[in-house]
Design a binder for these strands. Structure first.
Lengths: 239, 239
DNA sequence: TTCTATTCTTGACTTAAGTCAAGGTGGATT
DNA sequence: AATCCACCTTGACTTAAGTCAAGAATAGAA
């Protein structure tokens, strides 16, 4: 991996991918090439651990394909997912800018491909190119917003509201129809962990919504039948 | 406030203050002066609202004196404090790097003095001086760590553990003694809101710890009598 | 296809924490 | 010193969500 020739061999292909990553948007072709020569490609199989909490990190990751979860574990094994990272997204940025250890675990939910960028290389990039630092700041600010939303959900909303909000966010990409079908790309157990609950409670909540004809559930496909009502529930209305 | 002469009048004094702010550490005297000419001083009285959720912001704040809380409110009025900002700390950084609205409220817990920096000025500073962007990234990464810790507490710890962890963090500045006295600078109602609970539950929890001789409570002064036990509780042990 | 192993669901029960209501305490203000 | 008001505490009760255990459904592997 440390052989520069090996990296160069792939740089053209990498450049095409890196061009798509929001973090590197607005960069000149020259800078894109520079970045693409610095990243290292790594592959992880479904379920494989990428980062474990407390580990010291030398850089951060960009997801190229697949799906990665960033999560905490409690002393008795309960899992809280902080972030589901899709292609184009980054994780472990925190490690790149503060000394110290990773605050969370990360693992591949599906077979995944990631790019790794060393923090020293990133810092050099930033020193030479303020645009990258502004992108990075915007990306971190976006992630901050996300974490604030997670805190709001955990502290101020009940499970039905969290579920409804999560599904509404997923549905947001699908336009303005009133009946919306959503396909979960994670297991219900993982969805429960993302919502700060357990699978039994999620199951019961889905059931309650189903019996009120607000949604329809068939395996991993959930159909929102009554969007208006669903929005009320996301905002805190009782089922 | 927009009269440059007015700003200049204070710049020497401001410079002394800004030198102390971690965000601006490592800057040259020239840059420190430049920053000090850009900030605007604002004062807020105890309880006064500084930012309200949804508001559009033109920049971010640095606390100079006093104490500021950043918090969310639920539809039925419950409050969750995200961040207590002490002098030298910043808030609303998110607004400086993403378009859109403030994700939370901020208000002064005590009479407070803050500096305000316009985002356009900050972006100019960053373009000219990568050190500021690295400081800013480090500051945001630090805040991310904090929010991750808050999520961990809310999702994976019970109220006694959250309380113990909070107090241990406060005590961290006080060296290695086994009996530590802590003076709360916020009300117990606010402490409850920070811990994601309500004052009744906090009251009962303090009582339980008191009756087990782990702590002593006298008004806003809490004494940790059994640090070892307290650490176990913070890590999840039952009281 | 059959077998196996997760994942998911359901029921009965427990529990931590919230709600509601009443009373106590202490600091600020006149 | 008396009054006020917000803060805090305590008790009785409710409730949302977790635990435990058993069975059903589903997806992967052989």
């Amino acid at each position: 991996m440390k052989n520069p020739d090996y990296r160069n061999q792939y740089s053209k292909e990498y450049e095409q991918v890196i061009r798509q990553v929001p973090l590197f948007s607005g960069l000149s072709p020259l800078d894109l090439e520079r970045v693409s020569r610095l990243v290292i490609r790594r592959k992880f199989r479904k379920g494989q651990l990428i980062i474990s909490e407390g580990q010291e990190l030398e850089g951060f990751y960009i997801v190229i394909s697949g799906q990665v979860k960033v999560y905490k574990l409690s002393s008795d094994g309960k899992q809280q997912i902080l972030h589901l990272v899709a292609p184009g997204g980054t994780f472990a940025e925190v490690a790149a800018f503060t000394k110290g250890f990773s605050p969370a675990n990360a693992s591949a939910i599906t077979d995944s491909e990631v790019f790794f960028l060393f923090k020293n290389d990133l810092i050099k990039l930033i020193r030479d190119n303020p645009q990258i630092s502004l992108n990075m700041l915007a990306s971190m600010a976006q992630y901050l917003r996300h974490l604030v939303a997670v805190i709001e959900e955990l502290a101020l909303k009940d499970v039905p509201a969290r579920l409804a909000k999560y599904l509404m966010d997923l549905a947001a990409g699908q336009g303005e129809r009133s009946v919306i079908e959503i396909k979960l790309v994670i297991t219900k157990k993982e969805l429960a962990a993302r919502l700060g609950t357990i699978s039994e409670t999620l199951s019961r909540t889905l059931n309650k919504l189903k019996s009120k004809k607000v949604i329809k559930v068939a395996g991993n496909r959930i159909t929102i039948l009554n969007k208006a009502r669903f929005e009320e529930i996301a905002a805190g209305a009782k089922i």
